[in-house]
């Protein structure tokens, strides 16, 4: 059985990873890389203009009833953010105190501003709260420029993981939705789990120069979006049994084909030379309809049944071209 401290530690680290995801998504366009347990802070984001965002994460296990230690957590955060500010100097863009407590400065006039997730800059705070913070900074001789200080409250509670991850899941879903129209909900969940996992891992590597790059954050989404799912309008043209046969027999062949650049290049070359106006998806449909017969030879040795061979050829073309289109769309939208 895990000790009480272990559980509390895991809860804190879990909050840190999920807060990292949310802050990362807020800054995704300018993001260069992210790391948990960075050189100076719990969460460190490097932006593509060289600036840095540092966040100190403090989780409370029963955030809606337990306010006993919230203030001391904040004092500790000020010290920690001060160290980060000293380390990065003018390179710091923001210093964020991120917590799951709905009253992070218990009794200092902040509670009424907190509504679910709340992101407040120092200048947005009531005067009473500002004074309280300024006094603390002074008292602790902290190097925290107030204009760079932000308070971020993220709901994160209960032992029910569905509920605990609700907010981060919504943030990931919104992000996925902004890049892919009609994305299945499962994408968001799978992407969230993958990011949680990768961020956890990044936090366990001692070398603090190792970080999680934007490219590494976005490619999993492309992987997810281009996994052959054998459903949707394109696949409805095939007989169910034929589709089943292709799926059963050629799933590995197909991914091998779609992953090998020399094959992919042949298709892309022909596709680029294919003259037709319209959206990328319309061009893709038209290309497959018109050109697929030129590619059956690639699989003729594998499959003797014409119906299956034809379906396999079209499905491979579809997946190669879809991958290209999705990569282009997502890279463009996300400025990768």
């Amino acid at each position: 059985m895990q000790s009480r401290n272990d559980t509390a530690g895991l809860f804190g680290f879990s909050f840190q990873a999920n807060a990292g995801i949310i802050i990362m998504l807020k800054n995704i366009e300018r993001l260069d890389s992210i790391r948990l347990e960075g050189a100076a802070e719990d969460i460190e984001l490097k932006l593509n203009d060289g600036l840095v965002i540092c966040a100190q994460a403090k989780a409370v296990e029963q955030p809606y009833t337990n306010f006993k230690n919230v203030k001391s957590k904040f004092y500790h955060a000020i010290d920690s953010l001060s160290d980060a500010s000293k380390k990065y100097g003018k390179g710091i863009e923001k210093l964020i105190y991120v917590t799951n407590s709905p009253d992070p400065l218990h009794g200092e006039g902040l509670k009424q501003l907190i509504d679910n997730d709340t992101y407040l800059g120092f200048n947005d705070l009531p005067e009473e709260t500002q004074n309280f913070i300024l006094n603390k900074i002074k008292e602790q001789e902290a190097d925290v420029p107030p204009e760079k200080l932000y308070i971020y409250v993220i709901p994160f509670a209960t032992d029910d993981l569905q509920q605990r991850f609700k907010y981060v899941r919504e943030a990931v879903n919104n992000f996925v939705g902004s890049l892919i129209s009609h994305a299945p909900l499962a994408f968001g969940v799978r992407l969230m789990e993958r990011w949680q996992n990768d961020l956890f891992d990044s936090g366990t590597i001692k070398d603090t120069s190792v970080s999680y790059k934007k490219k590494e954050i976005i490619w999993p989404l492309i992987n997810l979006r281009t996994e052959p799912d054998y459903s949707g309008e394109f696949y409805s043209q095939f007989d169910e049994a034929v589709l089943e046969e292709v799926k059963e027999k050629y799933d590995e062949v197909m991914s091998s084909f779609c992953n090998r650049w020399e094959y992919v290049n042949k298709i892309l070359f022909a596709y680029c030379s294919f003259n037709m106006k319209g959206s990328p998806r319309e061009r893709m449909q038209a290309f497959i309809e018109k050109e697929w017969t030129h590619y059956t030879q690639e699989f003729a040795d594998l499959e003797s049944n014409t119906e299956v061979l034809n379906a396999l050829t079209k499905i491979v073309l579809y997946n190669v071209l879809l991958r290209r289109i999705v990569i282009d769309e997502i890279k463009k939208k996300i400025k990768l």
């Binding site: 993958r194 996992n197 490619w219 999993p220 281009t226 290049n265 892309l268 290209r324 990569i327």
Partner: peptide
């Protein structure tokens, strides 16, 4: 500067990272 080449590598590297992580778990 070849169309799609580095993407094909990035795509696979991403898949590989994921699989390695799953196997470790």
């Amino acid at each position: 500067n070849i169309l799609g080449y580095s993407d094909s590598i990035d795509y696979l590297v991403s898949q590989k990272r994921h699989l390695v992580s799953l196997l470790a778990n």
